[in-house]
Amino acid sequence: MTEEIIIAGFGGQGVLSMGKILAYSGIMQDKEVSWMPSYGPEMRGGTANVTVILSDDRISSPYLKVFDTAIILNQQSMDKFEESVKPGGILVYDPNGITHHPTRTDIKIFQINGSKLAAEMGNKKIFNMVVMGAFLKIKPIVKLENVLAGLKKSLPERYHHLIPLNEKAMKIGMNNVTPYQVASQFAHN
């Protein structure tokens, strides 16, 4: 098993920490992992992205052009990374703030209204964990218990009381992710 993921959005949305939690969960599940934050000209303009790879084998390049899964959290990232999903791959996105929805029909597309659900939970910061739950529902590459174990290991002890909130957010994400159908007039491969 090798899963190559790009997570992309605005700085401050928890993109990098979501990648870190995913990577830590991978370690808990005995996977090889790599986490590489965005580099190069794409950093300009306040977008942040991270490439996370989980694999049963030694990971070669931590830096990639195409991905199995893209988790997209703003329009700039949609413009940049929709085309980077491998045919047959997965695109998960938060429709909040998206004006041009994805149009590819050779990949599987899902929506998760993470920002709205996090606001309803009364904690916007938990947004990234709602999205994480949505992704893990579609691709259960790590078990929920290993995500929680990863959180426990990566968070300082003073934040451990927040782990149940993170668990709740992931479950809400899992229960609210929906397939997105590209309208036929926009469809392209």
Partner: peptide
Amino acid sequence: DGLIGQMMEK
């Protein structure tokens, strides 16, 4: 280099 220095791995 900056890539190996700043990326995270197990």
